[in-house]
Amino acid sequence: MQDTKQEKATDIVRLARHTKRPTTLDYIKFIINDFLELHGDRRYGDDPAIVGGIGFLKDIPVTIIGHQKGKNVKENVRRNFGMAHPEGYRKALRLMEEAERFGRPVINFIDTPGAYPGIGAEERGQAEAIAYNLYKMSSLAVPIISIITGEGGSGGALALGVADRVYMLSDTIYSVISPEGCASILWRDSAKTDDAAEALKLTAKDLLEFKIIDGIINEPAGGAQKDHENMARRIKTTLLSALSELLSLDCRTLLNRRYDRYRRMGKFTED
């Protein structure tokens, strides 16, 4: 997009959370043929905050999973604003393992404020569900591509974000904590949210510079919410080009590179 350089982090935070942005199901409608939505974690329930299923990207069979925010208050209540419970992450993993059994690449769309902080979520093992996804995804024997399409909120985002390629749309964020959370915990002052947004370095541009992501997918003029179809087309182009590379790798190379991708992340000295 034009001039993201000039934009403040706090403006990008606002855009990333724009309620008119396309959701996972919108993208699926535009880029996946013959989509079949699949449900449930086979353990406890079906979490509407994460959707997933199978279909074709052009002529490639794929499994596609993503956080799902609502379009209005009523749907957002049902979808819990895209904040998943453990059963959401477990459903995602079940679908990924099904993809692995049938040699189908996995595409994950990430758009969540975070994993839901609630009593039921804790009782059913929110931490375990996220940890187990990280563990299994690190060696899932099919290509995984993750795209941050809105908010990449901490562990709840990462639970769909261990991948061979990670992209961000240009007006999205990916962070260890929300600016609000950071301001309130660190400075006990919610008025410092804008400062926290800057300090956390959570924009697509920051993360590309840090080599945490592999690329930025530019949004159409005015942002993804202005033209859903155009945004979907851009995503499809990126997916097809990434898959053409990844599908040609043998499994050992694929998994070694995935391991190394995360292995090199971190900054420290050793004198």
């Binding site: 990462l158 990916y174 260890v176 370095k201 840090f210 945490i212 391991y259 992340m265 971190g266 900054k267």
Partner: peptide
Amino acid sequence: GARMQEGIFSLMQMAKTSAAVKR
């Protein structure tokens, strides 16, 4: 938990350590 002063680098340690447990 994750150290927020190191931002996204902290978050990525979760993936890195979990992958090492898998290996």
